[in-house]
Design a protein around this nucleic acid. Structure first.
Lengths: 376, 376
DNA sequence: GGAAACAGTGAATCATCAC
DNA sequence: GGTGATGATTCACTGTTTC
């Protein structure tokens, strides 16, 4: 079983990271307060939705809809819900690294309050993501549109926060080579994935699908990162994090949920290193200065470079700069200058001639990089 | 031209319904205050989004993105935006019939504040509706998910309000006999529909597509109803209302927008009774990306794919890319790479083993497509 | 005349590192 | 923390120009 920490026990622990890969039993804010500053990479939160259900809802055949009417989803007023939201978001911000991000999922019952509170607390929204359900529950009364989606907010802890993880290139490559959109399509959690008790009833009323968490985690974390879930429930976040080679920590009050989540996570087999390698793009590659091409004799001082259509040309100088029309500068500055632009990527703009063919100097940079890789 | 009422003139009018089918020139709240209590059936509001843009944004080709930086979208703080939102929503509630409903559209920049304010003012949210754009602007820097949707909130003026119009059966009939969902797919407004000035430039930076308004109006109004738009802009609400046999009233401050909207509405020919059936949205062949196969557990990270003759092989990674010989990429890129080609259709090139038989992964895509049948 | 290449654009909170 | 240099980065569609 995944280890479970009663909050009092965690507070007594001498190891400041004893909570990694475990479930903390206790109140969400109190448990968060027991964790160190800036210690987790990503937070995924599925807070109570504050569903304001009137009476019982019946299907057309008079069967009762098993609504979420648990006590933990009841709040006296919007003010009470806002105060609760504020408290756990503030506690989350303290434990989140400045380079970390937070995800919160909700429905129209609560997501507007969560979003406004995030903004009030100076979180910076990066995206709102729509989870479109392939198989949502119908609207039985025919008085509204079928509520076929939920909303996630993805935010960084500060408007100026930089350096958050976003595996753009991997997401794009996995999506037929077009960038991933803000609307995602997944089935709801059902079938074998849905945790059921001995009585055959679902263990948790709002268990999220693993595929949803997998995309969240693959998009915004690196292998080895710590993912915190302050409303752990059935432990989907922990199960997916473990499978994907990330660490997790869950906070949960109800012993039944803790028992189910703990057993579930224990059964998860993590993927291997090869499968977990994330495709990274140019941004992650080591920098190579233009000078390195001269030093490696891949280009020579005096050699002429042109753009792809040979409209502009420049001469390589021995110091690693270019010159054209009496002006000089780096490959980037001069590329911008000849085009009359503010900026230019000289690596893709300038080309050299290779046996009659014309190729970007970026190709030569790749040669350098592969030579460097061989030295490791 | 559709008639235009300077606010002062409207106040002097002896006819309490002189404003029907006209544009009121003036401030939103002041103009609303000049209308009678409980006099309109539906409100559609497209308020300023308070975008809070930083510096200029350039496309990869260095061209400048024509951002929405108009003065009317600038607010000093969230508090100022909230006060503004509160004021116009309160004014709207007074003129709205108890059986009426209100729609508000926004993006993540403002919609959470609008939604929370609606709830604070005791409006009752019926649905949040996601407008999925077929052709949204890309994320040029690759730092976020492509922002591909906007959100609408549909609400009644009171939790106990009954009797609002929802044309459930007509919507269902127009939607292949399944209930209309909360996620709608429409292209952004472009081409001939987009209003352009003499200079060829767009008249309004945020003109909404008529198809979106048509579904809103067909869903929540009856012929002859009055539809109010407190941020009239280019007059899409008025044009669609007139075409669909509804009355409209628009409120707008800027004379340029009023001139364009007035001429636009004048040119609209109302449909006859027979044609007034609900229009259905765009259907598109669903795009299925390789990661959908992993998410549906049809293939697994670590599994080996080969070409049809088993000359090449690659391993599936958890991020939805493939790896072979130390290199990684999308099914297409890696298929091309192993063959030494420039391009490759990974769907037909890569195969998986199924009980000894070898089948293209494209077969698995068909499985997903059949599961998604009925979804746009 | 038709096809293909080229150019333009849409509610966008859009970089990072070294000095 | 501010400044300057490096250099990474786009999808769907419309309309125009070129061959």
């Amino acid at each position: 079983m995944a280890s479970v920490f009663p909050l009092a026990e965690l507070r007594r622990s001498s190891d400041p990271f004893a909570w990694v890969d475990s479930i903390i039993k206790g109140d969400c804010v109190a448990a968060l307060d027991a964790l160190p500053d800036k210690s987790v990479d990503v937070i995924f939160a599925d807070p109570p939705y504050n569903l304001q259900l009137g009476g019982a809802l019946h299907r057309p055949d008079q069967s009762l809809v098993d609504a979420c009417d648990d006590h933990w989803d009841q709040f006296a007023s919007f003010e009470a819900y806002d105060a609760f939201t504020r408290a756990w978001l503030l506690a989350c911000r303290r434990v989140l690294k400045p380079t970390g991000t937070i995800w919160v999922i909700g429905s129209y019952h609560n997501i507007f309050r969560v979003g406004a509170t995030l903004q009030d607390l100076n979180f910076w929204i990066l995206n709102d993501i729509v989870w479109r359900k392939t198989n949502p529950m119908p609207n039985f009364k025919g008085r509204r549109f079928q509520n076929a989606h939920e909303t996630m907010i993805w935010a960084s802890p500060d408007p100026k926060a930089k350096g958050y993880t976003f595996n753009y290139d991997a997401l794009k490559a996995s999506n037929d080579d077009v960038q991933m959109r803000s609307d995602w399509l997944f089935p709801i959690c059902s079938g074998g994935e849905r945790l059921k008790g001995d009585d055959g009833k679902k263990v948790h009323p709002t268990q999220k699908p693993e595929a949803l968490l997998a995309r969240v985690i693959m998009a915004s974390t690196k292998p080895g990162d710590i993912v915190l879930d302050p409303f752990f429930g059935s432990g989907t976040t922990g199960a997916v994090a473990k499978r994907l080679g990330r660490h997790f920590v869950g906070i949960e009050r109800e012993q039944d949920y803790i028992d189910a989540a703990s057993a579930r996570i224990e059964a998860v087999e993590p993927l291997g290193k090869v499968e977990l390698t994330v495709l990274s793009g140019k941004k992650a590659e080591p920098r190579v200065a233009f000078n390195a091409l001269i030093e490696a004799d891949l280009v020579k001082p005096g050699q002429v470079l042109t753009d792809a259509k040979r409209r502009y040309s420049a001469i390589i100088r021995a110091d690693g700069t270019l010159t054209a029309n009496g002006e000089g500068g780096s490959i980037h500055r001069l590329g911008a200058k000849v085009q009359g632009l503010d900026a230019c990527n000289g690596w893709t703009f300038w080309h050299y001639e290779d046996n009659g063919a014309i190729r970007p100097i970026d190709d030569l940079r790749s040669v350098i990089r592969s030579r460097m890789a061989g030295l490791e």
